[in-house]
Design a protein around this nucleic acid. Structure first.
Lengths: 230, 230
DNA sequence: GCAAAAGTGTTCGTACTACACCCATGG
DNA sequence: CCATGGGTGTAGTACGAACACTTTTGC
């Protein structure tokens, strides 16, 4: 039965970064039928002897030459039979977070051009990639409140004001600085360092870091990260 | 490139039911190489011109002849390259809920035998189906707290004690009857009927029903269902 | 009248909300 | 000394947690 199945399987990644107080998505420019070009998510077909997760990692390395901090499966898009006009392709979309400060993207072998786009400045993309980003953005907003993944968008050592800004920006909400800090620190998964940032102006700020092992340990003991806002 | 891709794509469904105060999973017995038989999740290969969701619905109809109340994508299993020993198969797993009271399963064309298994009495299944059920069970436990999906496992009209029991059983926790009822009713998504159940003993109990439209409307207005326990 | 399940209110404590002033540095 | 961003505490409120007795029915 169904030995004649003729469906291809691909992976695509929505890679989020955070720069200049803006949430960004990584896109690549692809040639399409050698005439038109489209911006699209990094991704491509899965090889026969390759796990899905490795396919994503390989494509990201080939196309953008960067390594992600966080990677998880998002959703499999296979309900629109004609999403790729050439052949039926089902794509398993992934959700990735990266510390994009001090990062130089190299346009690598596969793709002509690689670029960060603000989440609100995404052009019309190839296939159903706009819908995929939309879903990834929803996932990010939801997860930010119940999993400590915001840190994956920041450098290892960060300022509280950066973390706070990240939450404000992504969730599109105002947050009370004092309450946010109190709550975050109450979990005991953020450590104070002895280092301070060198700012342009104002009082120097302590650098903090996220203690992943501590979080893992607390999770095993039944702790549940959750941060809500008025 | 990769015109030689040789990977097949399947769908599988974890169908949950609730009978006799027990959470059940629907399994089918499959012939395997015409000698050995295994219990497995209902599912099968996707057809070329068929959406993923329709593939699931078709398989469920073919193999079990039942219709589900709730169906959503769970996860795509494609990291273990040898999960099916015959060929590489990637499966998109779905998560389904059904009101299984007053339901007769028909062993239909495809499958030899169809049966409900208690969640704690699942045998060793074909492929990685045990892992899929495990993940579906986790999803069910999590969603029960923040989405009103428990109703999908009950008849249209149900007793509060049934609902309460369902939560206790699935979450494996004791719940205070008074607080549970208060909280549930406070949402305004459950309606009282004029009907009462005919019990064997004890005081007759009112029948309630879940108002899906009311819930949808409240959701649009920013309402968020959430029910927690001590 | 007794067994069995249904139905119902109050008190207490904790955790979220709202809110404003001083501090350290650079120029 | 002024501008800029960093750092901190408290009072009020609302919501979740704990908890026990009365009601209705069948036998």
């Amino acid at each position: 039965m169904a030995l004649d199945q003729n469906i291809r399987i691909a992976v695509d990644a929505v890679v989020f970064g955070y720069q200049n107080n803006q949430l960004k998505v990584l896109l690549i420019e692809q040639k399409f039928n050698s005439d038109k070009t489209y911006w699209a998510l990094p991704g491509g077909l899965v090889m026969n002897d390759e796990s899905l997760i490795n396919a994503v990692k390989r494509e990201l390395k080939e196309e953008t030459n960067l390594q992600v901090n966080y990677l998880e499966q998002l959703y499999t898009f296979g309900d629109d039979i004609n999403r790729d006009s050439r052949n039926r392709v089902i794509t398993v979309a992934y959700f990735a977070l990266i510390d994009s400060t001090n990062l130089e993207i190299k346009a690598d072998t596969d793709a002509d051009n690689v670029q960060w786009f603000g989440i609100n400045e995404i052009p019309k993309l190839a296939f159903d990639h706009n819908a995929i980003i939309e879903m990834a953005f929803h996932r990010l907003k939801a997860k930010l409140s119940y999993q400590p993944i915001g840190f994956e968008l920041l450098p290892k050592e960060f300022l509280f004001s950066e973390l706070e800004n990240l939450y404000c920006t992504i969730l599109e909400k105002e947050i009370d600085r004092r309450n946010f800090r109190k709550k975050m620190l109450s979990f005991g998964i953020i450590e104070e360092t002895n280092r301070f940032s060198t700012q342009k102006s104002g009082r120097p700020a302590k650098l903090f870091l996220f203690n992943q092992e501590k979080y893992n340990q607390l999770s095993r003991e039944g702790f549940h990260f959750e941060i809500k806002f008025a």
